[in-house]
């Protein structure tokens, strides 16, 4: 009976994980953080590169793991997690050349092309270089349109970390309960709850990976358009007057008649 009660308590507790994220003991210990990320096949190459980058815009693993033993603290104001996006429309002399040069510069910085249609490019570039690239782009032509935005996802990122940690702990406890369960009905219930928790953990980890990628790599959409040259006005073909004497007068005939 005691086991039954324990089983129901564990199931009830794990169900609550999907509704709220308890704080307090749910500290992100370095070991757990590494384990969670390793368990989901580690970070992508881009996120791994970003985690080695300066802290601006992304809290590196080392920084997060530095909070050993203390309650999870959100990033400081200097270390906000920002998803940076920008767009610019530039008038240039040669759009094809400008697009090609721009792409080469982005690749040199560690970025890559996400989409291209003609001279309209969408690129991903390291977030630390975003400001520099945006300002430099203004000097490449006449800016017709520009837009920048930064979406702060610090809270969501930290919250996800806490919830993943909590869910993992709940899953561990369920695994212990499963080992001790004897009744088939109990086993089935625990397994069902384990599946739900696992899916929840995978979903949250996916979301966290996505945010990490978005934060580490900014998105910039640039359109290069050709400079519009004024259309030369063709001289109008003169329609001669119906009156012959009018056709014979004027400054041309007066001043050039020697």
């Amino acid at each position: 009976m005691l086991r039954g009660w324990m089983l129901w308590l564990v199931v009830l507790g794990s169900s609550l994980v999907g509704c709220q994220a308890p704080h307090g003991d749910a500290a992100m210990k370095p070991g757990l953080l590494l384990e969670a990320e390793d368990a989901s096949n580690g970070l992508s190459d881009t996120a791994a590169a970003a985690s080695a980058a300066p802290t601006r815009g992304f809290v590196a693993r080392d920084d997060l793991t530095a909070a050993t033993g203390s309650p999870a603290t959100p990033a400081t104001s200097a270390e906000r997690l920002l998803i940076q996006r920008g767009s610019m429309r530039l008038e240039v002399v040669r759009p094809d050349d400008s697009a090609r040069e721009f792409l080469a510069e982005i690749k040199a910085l560690g970025g890559y092309l996400q989409a291209q249609t003609g001279t309209s490019l969408t690129v991903r570039l390291p977030a630390v270089s975003f400001d520099e690239v945006f300002v430099a782009l203004r000097g490449k032509g006449r800016v017709l349109e520009e837009k920048r935005e930064a979406n702060d996802v610090t809270e969501e990122f930290v919250d996800l970390g806490i919830r993943i940690d909590t869910a993992r702990k709940a899953r561990e406890r369920l695994l212990e309960v499963l080992q001790r369960a004897e009744a088939v009905a109990d086993i089935l219930k625990v397994e069902a709850e384990l599946r739900r928790l696992t899916e929840e953990i995978e979903r949250m980890e996916g979301r966290k990976k996505f945010l990490a990628d978005q934060v580490s790599m900014a998105t910039l959409a640039v359109v290069f358009v050709a400079k519009v040259e004024p259309v030369p006005v063709q001289p109008k073909k003169r329609v001669r007057s119906q009156f012959d004497w009018i056709n014979r007068v004027g400054p041309e005939s007066l001043l050039e008649d020697r």
Binding site: W245, N247, V249
Partner: peptide, 25 residues
Amino acid sequence: VHDPTKASDAKFWIDALRTDFVGQR
């Protein structure tokens, strides 16, 4: 110059000059 019209005045000819000089030239 010979006046090719039956009835005209100086104002008519000035307007005709304007039509050609401004409108065409």
